[in-house]
Each structure stands twice: as C-alpha cells, then as structure tokens.
C-alpha cells in the first residue's frame, strides 16, 4: 500500500488547543475523509500538513518527501479551501492566467474544459458568481495543473445537495486514476459516506481512529437498550454511549457479536454521523 501522504505524530499547540500526535496515511487511489466537530482540529491538521502553520512536532511527507524540500512537489498537490481565495473583481479567465504563470504543469485547455463543464462564464467577475460556482472555479483551478493529490478543506460546506453531488462526482472521477488520492475534511458526513474509502476522526485535537469506511459501516453498531441491559453490557466493548430520555445508545465495534451476546437488545447499523455524535456528545467508559 503506497502512501501518497504520510502524517506521523503531527502536533500543534495553540493557547487553549492542542492537536495531539495525529497520525494517518493516504494511500494511492483512495479518498481519506477527515471528520470531527467544529474546532476539533481538522483545519489545523490540514494547515500543518500544508506548512501554513509551524508544526511543534511530527513529520508530514508527500511521496516520501517533506513539502519544504521541493517547490516541484506543490505542482502535484491541488488544494481547495472553504472559500475562494481570488479577489472578487477577478474573472475566471484572469484566474487562469494567474495560475498558468504559477504552475509549470498548468493545462489551459483542461481549465477551459472545466469552465465549460461547470458552466462558468470566463469573463464574469467572481463577485457575481454564486457560492457553488465559486467553489467550482476553485476546483477547476485546483485540477487544471494536473495534481496527483487533492486536499479539500470543507470544500463542500455551504453548498446545496445538488451542487454537492456534482462536485462529489468530480472527486470520484479524479480518483479513478489509481495514482490519485484525496484528503477531504468535512463535517457533512453524508458526503464522506458517499465517497470516502477511509475515515479519520479527530475529536478535541486527538485522533480517535483511522479506519476504512466499510469497517465502520459493516462492523460498528449501536445497541439501543434500557438501563437494565446497559448495566449488563461488558464495558470493555463500549466505545461510547449516550442516554436519551428512555433509552441508552451504545456504540460498539462489532455489531454481530453484540447482537449474538445481547439477544434482547436492538442493534442498529451505525452511520458516520451516529459515530461522530456518540463520540462527541456521548461519554466514554473510563
């Protein structure tokens, strides 16, 4: 399993916040989803990966090299932040000219194709474009220098479901090339459920897990039970739990085992949203 991006023990201190030894890798041909509540450390992780903030500890390598070691490395990395980073009086045509001057690998024809595909008018000022169109422009610019790794920081946030679906299709198309990968942070977990191969969960600056989406989907489960049954559950099996009005919701890593062991309990499938909510709003067994 060749990793395009390798993050080891990434640590960053801020006043009142610690990104604590986060480690994961993004293999070739896959989409890695980075989830967590607002302020969990997703953007800090991405900023530290991109050398936009100084790391206090840890290493980040792209294709085995540190980002600071070569400008060429940046040619192979496309980044989309949560908003457009070009001044609002520029037009998509000017964005293309600016980007062409920056990237050796820039493909003007590909950029024009993206503009046509996304129905982006080349000569309209950015301020006249809708949020979705601005996002598409960012994606067009990020893809037109032919990157092998796409890093997306809340790139689909604030878009309507139709626009999100269009954009997710572009990402899926991008990873059809097995040398391409995507690292995608989002708090819209349904997007990640649709496209991600791996999920890394960051909570309060700590990495809780990095697992394949299928493992979460097919193995994780939620036991719905009353207080009596809850007291019988082996506490070592509980990842997180939360008490609603009349029911206990207990997250377990092996739903088949739980269903066999606790016959009277209802064991539901766990969505990424459920897992995130139980970890963030629930409690962990000490």
């Amino acid at each position: 399993m060749d990793a395009i991006l390798q993050v080891d023990n990434l640590t960053k201190h801020y006043a009142g916040f610690l990104l604590d030894h986060v480690s994961f890798s993004v293999p070739k041909g896959t989409i890695m989803g980075l989830i967590g509540e607002n302020g969990a450390g997703k953007s800090t992780t991405i900023n530290a990966i991109l050398d936009l903030v100084h790391k206090d500890d840890g290493t980040v390598t792209f294709w085995g090299q540190e980002l600071s070691s070569s400008k060429q490395l940046k040619e192979d990395i496309g980044v989309v932040f949560d908003g457009i980073n070009f001044y609002e009086t520029l037009t998509p045509a000017k964005v293309g000219k600016i980007s062409r001057a920056a990237y050796k690998q820039w493909d003007g024809y590909l950029y024009q194709d993206f503009l046509k595909r996304f129905c982006l008018p080349a000569d309209k000022e950015i301020k006249t474009l809708s949020k979705g169109m601005k996002m598409k422009l960012c994606i067009a610019a990020a893809l037109s220098h032919k990157p092998k790794l796409l890093i997306l920081d809340e790139a689909t946030g604030g878009l309507d479901p139709v626009m999100r679906d269009d954009i997710l299709d572009v990402f899926l198309e991008f990873v059809q090339d097995e040398n391409h990968s995507i690292l995608m942070s989002s708090h819209i977990t349904t997007d990640l459920e649709k496209v991600a191969d791996y999920i890394t969960f960051i909570h309060q600056g700590k990495m809780l897990f990095c697992k394949t989406k299928d493992e979460l989907r097919y193995q994780y489960g939620i036991i719905r039970c009353g207080a009596d049954l809850f007291s019988q559950i082996d506490k070592t099996e509980i990842l997180a739990y939360r008490k609603d009005d009349y029911q206990w919701n207990v997250l377990v890593a092996d739903k088949e085992k739980a269903a066999g062991k606790y016959k009277n309990a209802i064991v539901d499938n766990a969505t990424v949203d459920d897992i995130l909510l139980l970890y963030v709003k629930g409690e962990q067994v000490k």
């Binding site: 991109l50 936009l52 400008k71 001044y87 920056a102």
Partner: peptide, 18 residues
C-alpha cells in the same frame, strides 16, 4: 488589503512559490 480580504496569502503558499 485585497490579499487579506480574499485570504490570498495562504492560497499563494500552496502554489509552487516560497
């Protein structure tokens, strides 16, 4: 001021520029 408004600098740093 334009750069600040559009958060350009962080974007520029992901381009092949120092």
């Amino acid at each position: 001021a334009f750069d600040d408004q559009s958060k350009w600098t962080r974007y520029a740093m992901i381009m092949p520029l120092s």
